[in-house]
C-alpha cells in the first residue's frame, strides 16, 4: 500500500502551469502517477494529444523529468527505442542508475492510431509502463468519436440527430486486448480511487517487462458537465460498473473493487451533456440497451475474475 504522506514529500515529475483545461481529469491521472512514482527516476514519452500539447508549449515544459514527444501513433515505439538505448548503455557499463520508462497516450493515440505501435512494444517485452488516459474521444481536435467512445455518446463525428442516437458501437475493450498480449501486468484504474491507482502504478513499475494501465479520465469540455464534478463522476463510472477496476497480474484476473450496490448507468450519464439526447421518451430504449450491455460486460468480468455475481 503506497504511503501517501511519505510520497508527497518528493518533488512531482509533473509541474503546475500546464495548460490543460480547468477541471480536466487527465493531468489528475498524471499527478497521481507522479505521486506513486515518488523519487524513482523516470523518462516519459507522450503521444500527441491534449496532455502533450498543453504541457510543452515552447519555451515552457511541465515535465521535471526527461520527456519525449515524437508523433501521434508512436509513443510506445519511441519509448521502446529509449528503453533499448538504456539497456545498451547499461550493458556497456556507461550507465548504472535504475530508470523507469512511462508512456502516456490518450484513447485516440492508444486505442486507435497507436494500437499497432503499442501492440508491437508489448509483444517485444520492453520494460515500460504504458498508461492510457481514456477520455473517450479525440478531445484535442474537438471531441470526435474514437473506439473508446461510449455507446450513444454524442460527439462531433457521431452526433445525435433525427436518425442517430449518437455513437452506435460499444467501446473497444483495450485493457482485455492488452492482457491478451500476456504481458506481466495490465490494469484498469480511475483517479477517484487514488490508492488503487497508485498501488497499481507501483505494481506495474515493479514487474519485469511491459505493463499497461487504462485510466478513466473525464473531460468536462467534451462530456459537458460542471468542472467541479470531475472526480465525483469518475467515481460514478466505477460505481455503475461502466469502468470496473481490475487487474490482470501475470495472467490472473482480479477484481479490485466491487461496488456494494451497483448503481444504474443512468446516474452517471444523466450528468453528462453528451447523453442529453437520451433523456426523452424515445431515449428510454437506448438507456435500457446501455444498461443491458453494461450488465453483460460486468458479468463477463466477474466470471473472468472468478467472482460470484
Amino acid at each position: 500500500m503506497p504511503n501517501l504522506k511519505e510520497l508527497m514529500q518528493h518533488e512531482s515529475f509533473f509541474s503546475p502551469g500546464h495548460r490543460m483545461c480547468a477541471g480536466c481529469v487527465a493531468p489528475l491521472v498524471v499527478r497521481q502517477v507522479a505521486l506513486a512514482v515518488g523519487d524513482t527516476p523516470v523518462v516519459v514519452a507522450n503521444a500527441t494529444g491534449c496532455l502533450e500539447v498543453a504541457s510543452t508549449i515552447f519555451p515552457y515544459t511541465a515535465w521535471r523529468c526527461s520527456f519525449i514527444h515524437n508523433a501521434f501513433a508512436n509513443a510506445a515505439a519511441t519509448l521502446s527505442g529509449v528503453e533499448t538505448a538504456y539497456r545498451a548503455l547499461k550493458k556497456q557499463g556507461k550507465i548504472n542508475k535504475e530508470i523507469k520508462f512511462i508512456a502516456f497516450g490518450g484513447d485516440g493515440g492508444t486505442y486507435d492510431i497507436g494500437l499497432q505501435s503499442l501492440s508491437g512494444a508489448m509483444e517485444r517485452g520492453h520494460n515500460m509502463l504504458y498508461i492510457c488516459y481514456d477520455n473517450g474521444a479525440y478531445m484535442n481536435t474537438g471531441i470526435q468519436r474514437s473506439s473508446a467512445t461510449p455507446l450513444f455518446a454524442d460527439t462531433t463525428t457521431s452526433p445525435a440527430g433525427q436518425v442517430s442516437s449518437g455513437k452506435s458501437q460499444w467501446r473497444k475493450d483495450l485493457t482485455a486486448i492488452m492482457a491478451a498480449h500476456n504481458i506481466p501486468y495490465a490494469a484498469q484504474v480511475a483517479p477517484s480511487h487514488f490508492m488503487d491507482l497508485m498501488t497499481k502504478v507501483q505494481k506495474a513499475l515493479s514487474v519485469d517487462g511491459p505493463s499497461f494501465i487504462n485510466a478513466m479520465a473525464h473531460c468536462p469540455r467534451g462530456w459537458r458537465y460542471d468542472t467541479r464534478e470531475g472526480v465525483e463522476l469518475t467515481r460514478l463510472s466505477v460505481e455503475t460498473c461502466y469502468w470496473p477496476l481490475y487487474e490482470v497480474d501475470h495472467g490472473k484476473w482480479k477484481l479490485s473493487y466491487k461496488p456494494k450496490e451497483k448503481k444504474p448507468i443512468e446516474t452517471w450519464i444523466r450528468k453528462q451533456g453528451r447523453f442529453r439526447h437520451l433523456f426523452t421518451d424515445k431515449g428510454q430504449t437506448e438507456i435500457k440497451w446501455l444498461q443491458q450491455r453494461v450488465d453483460e460486460e460486468w458479468s463477463k468480468l466477474l466470471e473472468r475474475c472468478k467472482e460470484v455475481g
Binding site: 508527497m8 514529500q9 503546475p16 490543460m20 477541471g23 489528475l28 499527478r31 497521481q32 505521486l35
Partner: peptide
Amino acid sequence: FVYCPDLAILSQGEKVAGIDYQHCKGCGI
C-alpha cells in the same frame, strides 16, 4: 492535494497548507 489536476494545493510536510492561486484554475474539484 491528491485530486487537484493543477497541483495547486500547497503542502507543508504531511499537511495541506493552502492554495497556490498563481496556478489554481478554479475548477472546484
